[in-house]
Amino acid sequence: MLIQIRKRSDPRSSEITPKSAYLDYVSRRRFLGTAVAAGMIGSLPLPASAAAPKKAALQGVVKSRYKLDEPLTDTEAATGYNNFYEFGTGKTDPATYSKDFKPKPWTVAIAGEAAKTATVDFDDLIKPHQLEERVYRLRCVEAWSMIVPWVGVPLADVIKRFEPSSKAKYVAFETLNDPQRMPGQKSRVLDWPYVEGLRMDEAMHPLAILAVGMYGEEMPNQNGAPIRLVVPWKYGFKSIKSIVKIAFVEKEPPTSWNRSAPNEYGFYSNVNPTVDHPRWSQAKERRIGDSLFSAKRPTLMFNGYADEVAALYAGMEMKKNY
């Protein structure tokens, strides 16, 4: 007998859309579609992703206990609607302008307060670990969300290999800074390189992963090839892409969006429906793939991972430490 233990972050069975309701919804969509404007709601095959370089399927990936019963976001949407300002600020810019990006060979510098520091080749960094698939909610700070099947390794396991010292209170991450390869860096939308950071206990949390692929394939360039962070209980911009440096540091490291607009983006940036962005409400979100006329969905505390991560912030004033 198969016993399934529901994790608290999994959607309750009452939350899961029954197939009949879904089909009903589909037919209503169709009706609306013809009634309002034929096909107004149809999904868009993006020309950009059609010509994207083909990524190899990843071998030896095991399923993890982290899965969701919600339908996955279409690959075309997850790889065609991106925020990755290193390749431009438009949502289709990353797919369009990252086509010629060559993510390999790739090295990651491990630095700072650790017994072992080195510049490590991508393969050497990842190979010692078991690749697993993690289906996570992704909640962008712009109030839209996706369901993405990432492939990666627990960040904690990678960190342990380098034996951070007791002085290592935070982990600082850095994205590649190379305007020749990342044309969006030619304009100063942000202070390049993009930098992010986590508190050590956040970085060591089992939900945090270094992702090297999605949908069973190597990481597409526009999603942060070849290696990116995924911290699903925080807004998407915390999950830094195309990482070239991981440093263990004693003090809270600077983070790009916080430097750009400190009143809008805090160091923690945990998904929190009760703390609004100054310019828009964070109470609800739009699920990518939903139609023009479907309602927004309520945003969950810590993006639905409260049971796993709330303890990290016990006693912390969330409105102040946004």
Partner: peptide, 18 residues
Amino acid sequence: LAWRAAGPGFGPNPAEFL
């Protein structure tokens, strides 16, 4: 806009697009 609506649609985030 009408052509997009009838054909390729408004993309992954139609509300934002519109």
